[in-house]
Design a protein around this nucleic acid. Structure first.
Lengths: 203, 203, 203, 203
DNA sequence: AATGAATGAGAGTTCATTCAT
DNA sequence: AATGAATGAACTCTCATTCAT
């Protein structure tokens, strides 16, 4: 039994090794310019080996996609301890942004890349995305119960909020912050989000 | 002289022909899946011909990039007739979004794609981008003179505003609006922007 | 000793298991499109296991080749009970055809496939083939003693007879009977052979 | 205009160059073991070049298949000068065999190989095959009008005749004549066919 | 005896790019 | 100016085979 367990563990580790390499190369060069060969070279295995762990190139992408959503979900855990709805909303935005900034590669993969991502092949991840969105909407409705956003539509509000944080994350991931010469990207995001939080609170 | 003029004109027309074809195919299949051959076929010329007008594939991309910025700038013209600074700010956002929605392909190219876009090779476009941004900042400062955004930093505000509209545009361009099942993407953007405008005004 | 016997038996059974799987897949997809992996999957063993019983892919082919000849020989047994030489000759043709039709896979392997079959590597099968041919010649000589085929060369006759039945079998195995639209392949062979038998008898 | 003509001619020559190389390698190693690379090497061009003349590997096969049928048809021309129906039938068999012996590679391709040959993709060749068969049947019916083969079915007879010559050709192409040690394959076919002709005439 | 992991070689195919005409 | 031919490098993916366990 311990043999089986070890094998299982090694297999998982190998998968993860591949995924990590792939993720980092995806970010560097983009999905299309990442070849199986390159991934294999990075981990110092032969190209064929990759196929022992993933049926095809797309599968690597999907696995990463899934892992990304799992991580995003996890990183939202702290929200459970935030009682005040407006605080929770703001915390959610901050955590989302934190996730994006700290996991550029995952974020890009999940929310920017076009790659082989379509709802049909990816119902599971889509569902996770949906869940996160539902949670955002419910937080917004909680805010409304607490007196905020009177007369507004929760769904439309959720889109606006998401857009703002996504916009920051996307400009960051794709290096468009560089137009602000002499400014640190991270600082821009930080200040930008602070303003947005204030605006939300007063809205 | 008229011969030279004609030649010049024909050359320009041919370039434009290629660019139009390329742009439409880029949008359809993405930059990487667009082959020179495909572009050539679309315009019914041979692949070699493309190289008489563009040194390499990247150059087509850069030319489109440039054209995009030129168009964006043009589409901002109506702003000159808007006197009130806050109105002008809101109008700017709306025009920007309009541009993105109506020119998905250009917008994607300019603000989302990673592709072969870097400041070194592209100083010209970078400048145009910079100009647009400067204009945004100046509008914001005008708003401040009119009493809005007291004590805020214009640059940071500009980033937040840009992020929001870019976020909407990006979610739209990369089909992430689909998570909102049963909702029209265009409608989401419309409502979302309306809320954002209101927020800005009250901030 | 019984342990050794059991081991021996198990080994033989395993070999046969592999051979049966291989043969059926060879027939389905052809020799070249049959991978060791596929064979292994079919019998629910690992690819490596195959190599415990056969040194290389070719060996499986050779073993099947051999088995085919053994079976063909066996299926000729009934001939021993046919006294009249012309009847025996006709019966031989019929049995040969029956074998081919009922064992398309073996027949193809033995008489049509090029694959890795050459006299040097396969002296044993060659011998069995030779025996069968010798038997055919002797039957023909018996016919001659009974007054048939006067003044003909037995060897040349044997080639003609073999060619006819092989031709039918080969057209059948490689689906060339389809040119006869609206006709059952089996029926064509049946009728064709009947005519051939009559011709032989009158020759 | 002569330029276009030259280009056309060169293109045709190149296609033929490829086809000739392919045919010879197909015969040597079989369809599956013939790689585009090998063909390219043989003609001293790069693999990509092949694709300028054939969309895919199958297409080479199909082109050869077609050429084979065209050649077979051509080689049947002399029959038009043979008046006597039985003579014509025998001549047809001889010409068919001649074609097979002299064009081992084409014959193998057309009547033995499994390869990517199916009626759906190949209606044209199938038709040519059909025509040849129809011609055989009509010759047989002419023989019947001249008093031969009384009471026999022309279609069934045609199958028997075809089978015999195909059988000889197939045993020849796939080197099964080697079982007749000390005998020349060509001689076997020659004698065998002579006997078969006699048989037919007396039937 | 059996396996899972690994690999090197090679398959068909595509493509940006060059160049003689 | 335009082209058709050509190529070399790259792509994803498959497979027979080996080997430590």
């Amino acid at each position: 039994m311990s043999i089986i367990a070890r094998r299982q563990r090694e297999r998982t580790e190998m998968r993860q090794l591949i995924l990590d390499a792939a993720r980092s190369i995806f970010l560097e060069k983009g999905y299309d310019h990442t070849s199986i060969r390159t991934i294999a070279e990075r981990i110092e295995y032969s190209p064929g080996t990759i196929y022992l762990y993933f049926k095809e190139k797309d599968d690597i992408f999907h696995a990463l996609h899934e892992e990304g959503f799992r991580r995003l979900l996890e990183s939202m855990q702290p929200l459970l301890h935030v009682q005040d709805p407006m605080e929770r909303l703001k915390a959610m935005g901050r955590l989302y942004l934190d996730f994006a900034l700290k996991n550029k590669d995952f974020y890009d993969l999940m929310f920017i890349m076009q790659a082989p991502m379509n709802m049909e092949k990816d119902p599971c991840n889509w569902e996770m995305g949906s869940h996160t969105l539902d949670f955002l909407k419910s937080v917004i409705r909680d805010c409304q119960k607490a007196g905020y956003f009177k007369g507004k539509d929760a769904e439309d509000l959720s889109f606006m909020v998401w857009s703002t944080v996504h916009g920051m994350a996307a400009l960051f991931c794709r290096n468009r912050c560089q137009v602000y010469e002499n400014r640190e990207a991270l600082d821009l995001v930080e200040k930008g989000f602070t303003y947005f939080s204030e605006m939300l609170e007063r809205y």
